[in-house]
Amino acid sequence: MAIIFQKPKALKDTSMHYCPGCTHGIAHRLVAEALDELEIEGRTIGIASVGCSYNSYDYFGCDMIQAPHGRAPAVATGVKRSKPDSIVFTYQGDGDLAAIGTGEIVHAAARGEKITVIFINNTIYGMTSGQMAPTTLLNQYSTTTPYGRIADLHGYPIKVCELLATLDGPAYIERASLADVKQIKNAKKAVKKAFQVQMAGLGFSMVELLSTCPTNWGLNPLESMNRVKDELVLHYPLGVFKGESLEV
């Protein structure tokens, strides 16, 4: 018998600090599997952001840089522009990317920066314990929308893929989900394709991964997975928003 599934090499052995059932761990694995399968870990430089995944450099084996909150796309730009042969990715949550980092992500995309962005959207701030994020759904409870998110007060959740797809710079944008086995397999393909787009120098690539936050959603891991499928996907439809027909 041969091993057909195990921890990817590009992930260290360290046990991850994420809460039980949190899909960050799956997202990390998919990125590491891409690095392994494309054999690029040696020339990859990852940019960790600020949020639950602030210390993703404890988990990814490639060289890593810790970016200030929201600034990972700018840091990635600096790295890629000085080392154009390297593979650069950022790993960011919805607070990091779509709140404080909106300027950086929009302009990195508009420049067609040849980087890959892994965007984890779980509609909440996890690390700081459950505040509203720019992607928090209407009526969703959070520690800063204790009566539910109200459009009149808190505005509307941002659809990042659709937003960035209006720009000419991005070569590949897909929204996938980690909510079940089938969707995880599709997400794996999307993540790998995003890195291949960068390897081919075709421009900016981003994969938004709908994810769970059992702790701050107040749901158990399985209920959280279902919430992604029952609620998140309605506001954040899955699919390719840029580079549908791209061959890599």
Binding site: A2, M16, Y18, C22, H24, G25, I26, I184
Partner: peptide, 12 residues
């Protein structure tokens, strides 16, 4: 596939 912590090794 669905394990977030790479706990599971599968052989076939």
């Amino acid at each position: 596939t669905v394990c977030p912590d790479c706990v599971i090794i599968v052989e076939k």
